[in-house]
Design a protein around this nucleic acid. Sequence first.
DNA 1: ATGTGC
Length: 382
Amino acid sequence: MTNTPARVDSFYSSKTWVSPDAITQLRNATQLPGMERIAAMPDIHPGAGSPGGAVFASRHILHPKLIGGDIGCGMQLCRTSIDSRVNVRRLAESLGSIDDVWEGNARDFLKSHDASLPDYERVVGTIGGGNHFAELQVIHEIHDAKSCCELGLDPKKAVLLVHSGSRSYGQSVLQHYGSAADRNGIEATSEIGQAYLADHQRAVRFAFANRCLISHRFAEQTECDIERVLDLCHNFVSEHFDDQGPLWLHRKGAAPADQGLVVIPGSRSSLSYLVRPIGNGVANLYSLAHGAGRKVSRSQSDEKFGQLSVEELRRPRDKSIGLDNLVICEQRNLLRQEHGKAYKDIDRVIEDMKSFGLLEVVASFRPILTYKTRSDCDDGDG
DNA sequence: ATGTGC
């Protein structure tokens, strides 16, 4: 059996900085068993063994490690009844904490989302760490009024964007199959391959339920009404068919471009974008970037932004776009790691994909309140 | 990413 390296199609311009480590990881991934094609997005960045911000298409073979532990991670956008000129400080107070175990009936909630997992009832409805968040945003600019109207987006009302995944459940799934799979991957039709797909689907449903419960808790505590506008997963494997038969698409930090409109978040100090995927999707493997993409590693961010005061870190501002955000995050190191300058320029990322004919911008949003965590128990130095 | 790792 021949093992020619996979073809890589890249969707970033020379203006976008790409880490050499990400390129090395990308090249390594071309050698994986069954790997046929890879699409690299402008938000590509180094990950645990393989890069985030890419899609990996393999024949016959599943690669759980490419998806990683946060199976089902994604973005949920909700309309809210909150006035876009709301007093943010007061709202932040009413929001309180959503870090703790949800007081409602998690068992019934999970059951109603076809995501029953008795061992994970205490964790559902929590955001988690890293780049996850629940963020209130307001419409910055409308490019396609008709589409915004169809989604029921009202410039007078704030929207809620939730970024979270399957928490520790997805991690347990990777642990269970990852070692068996290693870099060889798993034959998709094998018993273990089918078992992975079943558990992976469970993680995707659990992650969706988790985002729904986070949105619900946000609405509960701020006493507002919400309605889901869209929910998109950016870490998952799915089966596609071409003239050669089934092709396994591994999206790792890549949003699907074949499920309607896509929301692509920037950082806590930049715009986020609602876009319409265009083109036939073949070259970009039916996918788009999932965000700005990390530019500075977490450990480097701790040092690079170590001199900034907590006040500065909590109040990202950008006068040029009228951005004045408030970040609820009691962990100083996390604030540093999630600093806007630790990420690539989202406008560049969007511009690149536009120039490759992958999308049209529908609207942009700017953040007014980001919830990361009220808990400070994980904070290292200060 | 992770009720976190030695």
